[in-house]
Amino acid sequence: MPSHTKSTARLGDRVFSNLSKGSGIALLAIMAAIAVFLAIRAVVAIRANEGNFLTTFAWDANADPPYFGIAVLLFGTVVSSVIAMVLAVPVAVGIALFISHYAPRRLAAGIGYVVDLLAAVPSIIYGLWGALYLVPQLTGLYEWLDQFFGWTGVFAYDGTPARSLMTVGILLAIMILPIITSVTREVFLQTPKANQEAALALGATRWEVVRMTVLPFGRSGVISASMLGLGRALGETMAVATVLSPSFLINASLLESGGGTFAQNIASQFKEAGSMGRDALIASGLVLFLLTLLVNGAARLIIARRKEYSGANA
């Protein structure tokens, strides 16, 4: 009898461990298959390309021979994400501080909750709101920018509907604000109480407490939260596709329409794409993939470093 239970136990163990190992291998296989498949298709497209994949300002991937390049997309993706980061990160840090250290406690809990929920609002809804509500509101702001900074060329504006990279940047900033805020807030809340109380005991003002204990403690957390937001902004598709007026040229002015991003270009081109066109889009998707990978990798490195740091501290 005991030997019997023992053998079923062993059998059960073997079955279960193999099952979990098997699913791990299956997952690995799926992921590897995706990577390999995408890479192969991309290479096919890049080989056939008549233009230069990196510098050509056009997307005639369905033409024979295909002629396309990602210059415009790379520019648009990077610029709109940078705008989003510049706008969102300081504000997100501000809100995080507000929730963690400034707001009345009851209000803070409520706001923290709402921010978390906003992080889950689907991007298509941001797109809908952006296209129907935000774009008309921005014309006035852009005219004002043009009036004072138009001479730089970067902020020149011709009064046409505000469907430009700047608008995309602003919308992306609003979209990634909740996610950056909620991660940053978590980090700020973890600032060791002892440090803050020590600072207070020395007669520091609230701002001095924040500056001397909270911000140094949370710095790497803020950076990794920003990277998380940046990853979202880079890959965002629908919100961009609904507010941007795409074209394959780089406009010196950020306020005037035109440009494109990787994800938006895939969403608007795939339906007309023949097999070569799809391969070309996959190639561009792979570049986007690498870009997000870079950003996520950086974030992970920073988080890992912070873990050691805080571990040593604790």
């Binding site: 369905n62 339906k271 007309e272 794409a273 023949g274 097999s275 066109g277």
Partner: peptide, 12 residues
């Protein structure tokens, strides 16, 4: 979806 897309899907 537009003529271009329709023709592509038909040809596929």
């Amino acid at each position: 979806t537009g003529s271009g897309a329709g023709v592509q899907e038909f040809l596929q």
